[in-house]
Simulated scan of single mutants.
Amino acid sequence: MRLLQALFFPPEQPGGVSSMIPYLQEKFSSARWEMELFSLPKRIRGKGREEVVFETFDWTRYGDSPIVQKYMQTYRDYLWWTRLRLQKPYDLIHAHHPIAALAMKTVFPDTPVLQTIHSSYERELILNGKIEENGPEHRFLTSVYRELEAKTDQLITVSDAFRRYMGTYIEYPERVKIMPNGYDERRFKPVPHENEVPQLMAVCRLVPAKGLDVLLRACARLKERNIPYVLHLIGDGPSRQDLERLAQELGVYDDTIFYGYTLHPEEFMPFFDIFVLPSRAEAFGSVFAEAALCCLALVGTSVGGVPEQIEHGVNGLLVPPDDPEALAEALEQVIGDPAYRYELARTACEKAKAQYSLNRVAIELKRMYLGYEARGSQSL
């Protein structure tokens, strides 16, 4: 069976897609399967000129927005690159970004196209202060969900929470399948260690949606209470200078290490103690599963798909978003009780191995893909 995994970013970019899809190739390396990866290189900008018409809405109503214009130009670029580079037929295409799915269905209208939606671009833009809720960009991006439903053969998402969110914008939410991301356990190697001072860490893009300002305020409360810790922030983004400035204002800059972007944070993640990320929105939160596989205690917020990974008090702690005091109390609990911290980490690791293994995802995908192959055979 000839498969194409259609990504948006190149596979080396950070995120849930890149932490799973490239590693699937090994699981599909047999005479029965032939899998390729495809993505849009960063250098391809402004090449596409093809006129675009959507089936379910008139996108030109929102065409005055620079954000919509950029989105549509990227779509044209993806179409141009796809037509240029892909000629041979595929038995099935699995897309991992709306632009990839719509472009693939345009170029290969007779090929089944499955679409996994990994995150909400519009929610991220709202939380990061780039667009307004119910503004033209928001309406445009949520209209794309209905277009995907009409054009693709199957919608998939990574959590029940995100399926419920997406359900308000599509006609048949009950048809959306849920398939959490999977991770190759061999990449994550827990290391027995004893840190005299508990080491907190977060891995994410430095943007307002991740709530790192809340984390710094919680850390300031820990410092006021003379609770020892070191905070490691791994990642980069437009909020870095603001976060560094806030850390200085709060008096926690000397206790915080800003690493910048790191390609493989899982290589040194096991040497820390507590993973904490007070996100304001998460479709799934892949990094929580990755931290769990490294046997770290988890502290997160009760948003999106995070509560589907963390059962409060069992394999981690949950706090409300935008609540520095609640976050400080949760961190104080796991910092001050190493035995409890270890038990949370052990339970989180066991759950991640059982529910988020790459083998499980590969088996589910093969079953799904073969179903489309069988339908094709019956139609001949």
Rank of each mutant, 00 (worst) to 15 (best):
M1V: 13
P10Y: 09
P11I: 10
P14G: 08
M20P: 00
I21T: 02
P22R: 04
E26D: 14
E26V: 06
K27S: 04
F28T: 06
S30P: 08
M35C: 13
E36Q: 12
S39E: 03
V52R: 01
F54E: 02
F57T: 03
Y62H: 03
S65F: 06
Y78F: 15
Y90P: 04
I99S: 03
T111P: 05
T111M: 09
T116Y: 05
Y121N: 13
N128V: 08
G129A: 07
K130L: 15
N134H: 13
G135K: 01
G135E: 12
E137R: 00
S143L: 02
L155A: 03
A161E: 14
R164G: 08
M166H: 02
G167P: 03
P173V: 05
P173N: 02
P180S: 06
G182K: 05
E185Y: 11
F188H: 08
E194R: 15
C204G: 11
C204Q: 09
G211E: 07
L212T: 04
G235I: 00
Q241M: 07
H264G: 01
F268V: 05
D273I: 00
S279A: 12
A283P: 10
G285P: 13
A289V: 15
A291V: 07
A292C: 06
L293G: 03
L296C: 07
G300N: 10
G305H: 09
V306R: 12
E311T: 14
G313A: 04
N315Q: 11
N315F: 03
L317F: 02
L317Y: 05
L318K: 08
L318P: 01
P320L: 10
D323M: 05
A328W: 01
A328Q: 05
E332D: 06
V334E: 10
R341L: 03
R341V: 07
E343K: 10
L344S: 10
C349R: 15
L358D: 01
L365I: 08
Y372F: 15
S379V: 05
